[in-house]
Amino acid sequence: MHMHKLEKIWITIGIVTLIAFLSTVGIQAFTSDHHKPPSDLTVIDPEKVHETAPFDEPGLKELGDNKYELIIVLQSFGFTPNDIQIPQGAEVTIKVTSIDVVHGFQIPGTNVNMMVTPGHINSMTYTFDETGEFLILCNEYCGTGHHYMSAKLEVI
């Protein structure tokens, strides 16, 4: 098959750039847990969330040495708990699940963004370095009250 010389050069540059780009993304993703997109494999019975640890006691828990765990239950159209205070500089592992439909868990202004599907627990770790008022919102359509589904988070 005939290929123009300039096209060969063009495609080669493209492929080399692509390999360099994917290597950068891959190395960054696989060398640090904080850079992986949330991919928790833990399952849970969506009808027994309130009886299953750790979701039987939602809220912020100190694990020691500025490390925290934040347990949140999502349902149409709210988060439990929905008013949260976190100390500045805390490294927080956020664990979420849904008791009904698919929801999203997003904190604008941070990289916290997860899909929350019923039957699964999703989780990610984030360090809140700056104080201020944050908004937690659901970014997946979950019914007619979807736009009311939000919570307040304050870093103090």
Partner: peptide, 15 residues
Amino acid sequence: LEPGISHGWKFFQVV
């Protein structure tokens, strides 16, 4: 960003 799918397979499909 979804739970229940391992990161390795996600990355494979990204490539």
